[in-house]
Design a protein around this nucleic acid. Structure first.
Lengths: 204, 204
DNA sequence: GAATATTATTAAACATTGTTCAATATTGCA
DNA sequence: TGCAATATTGAACAATGTTTAATAATATTC
């Protein structure tokens, strides 16, 4: 069935075109400020067409959401070859922060945007596996570190959540511009310094 | 000039009425979902009137933003009588988390909402003193703890930022519903457990 | 290959949003 | 009482997400 496959591929092409436009506009303007009409205009189609490829704006969000998690996961996996668990854990943290600073809008969409996730909670739990697997990756590394004598007296799950929370806190305060107290050019530095402080605390 | 003062007071009254309605609606529906018309309807005035008392929706946001910081500050100050710096620091953290869990919408508005803060950055730095003073309060306590021998080898500023980031991360992941991996009733527990893990790490 | 069914695409419409503005009602002061 | 200032309204504007009836383009069947 080569023909219908090509048809399908062509259909996918427009879908990809929409996604590319959305990604770019989200990147430039942010999620809320990007309208369906903006996207349509930038691909030179009528606004209505988008609803043939996506149920609504949330579904576009959701697609990029999943995509973002995949690429964060890949970034964090890139240090998985480090044998020492503690060293790997710290490298993972650094990767996480790098990802957030390099892709602030996508990160925003993944962890800080409001509406569409609630939709996810109630209707479909699937799709969140991406986020799940990042948590698991971190958790396994934490457990390994514990076997080597780190984190004595702490339990894996809360500790992992806490580590993730710290990483998220460090970058999200910056992304949402709650770092005004620092001079603008320092704002990235303070995130790195904060993480360094955290790293030092982990060691002890 | 008693009369014009009363007039002023009456004017303030409507302003307060608007704020109360806004607060309540924000609480019930969230910021974005609350429209100027909703607010107007709930106080039985026409929508236009709101613009006589507030420049725009951002200014309402800004007012509640400041108010939120004042009440968070008060909550954190309520443990300032604790003599032991480390004990006080941990109590402050707990207060912070309690505030966020008890007032998720206000907290959201204070730390996680997007648009209006940018406006703040460019035009007026004033109004942010509230946030500033919370940071300072935390910083002073951290410094005291350091004088007692804690946090050896760390610097005050990054450490304080890191602590604040961890607190923020813990509660904001919950507020923005990124804790789906846990059963719903566990979701508050995991925040507390995460904080406990953090507390234990601080001690060492 | 013509006729028909299916799909892709559009343009217009709807309800809702934040905001503005001229018209009107209410009040303060001379 | 009459005039100026202020408070309040209601309608309008442009922009939003979304729906839907229409048209255009393509696939399928005879």
């Amino acid at each position: 069935m080569g023909i219908s496959e090509r048809k399908l591929r062509e259909k996918e092409q427009l879908k990809e075109l929409i996604l590319n436009a959305a990604r770019e506009l989200f990147f430039k303007e942010g999620y809320e400020k990007t309208s369906i009409r903006n996207i349509a205009e930038s691909i030179e189609y009528s606004p209505g067409i988008i609803y043939h490829y996506f149920k609504d704006k949330n579904e576009i969000f959701h697609t990029l959401h999943t995509e973002g998690f995949k690429s964060l996961k890949k970034k964090m996996e890139s240090v998985s070859s480090i044998a020492d668990p503690m060293g790997r854990l710290k490298a993972m943290g650094k990767s996480y922060i790098q990802f957030a600073i390099e892709n602030p809008i996508i990160y925003d969409l993944m962890f800080m945007l409001k509406a569409p996730v609630e939709h996810m909670v109630s209707e479909e739990v699937e799709g969140w596996e991406e986020g799940e697997s990042i948590f698991t990756m971190l958790k396994l590394t934490v457990r390994e570190a514990m076997l080597q004598g780190y984190f004595r007296g702490l339990s894996v799950e809360p500790l992992t959540y806490m580590i993730l929370a710290t990483l998220h806190g460090l970058v999200s305060l910056k992304i949402r511009k709650r770092t005004n107290r620092f001079k603008v050019n320092e704002s990235e530095q303070i995130v790195m310094n904060g993480y360094q402080a955290f790293s030092l605390m982990l060691d002890r």
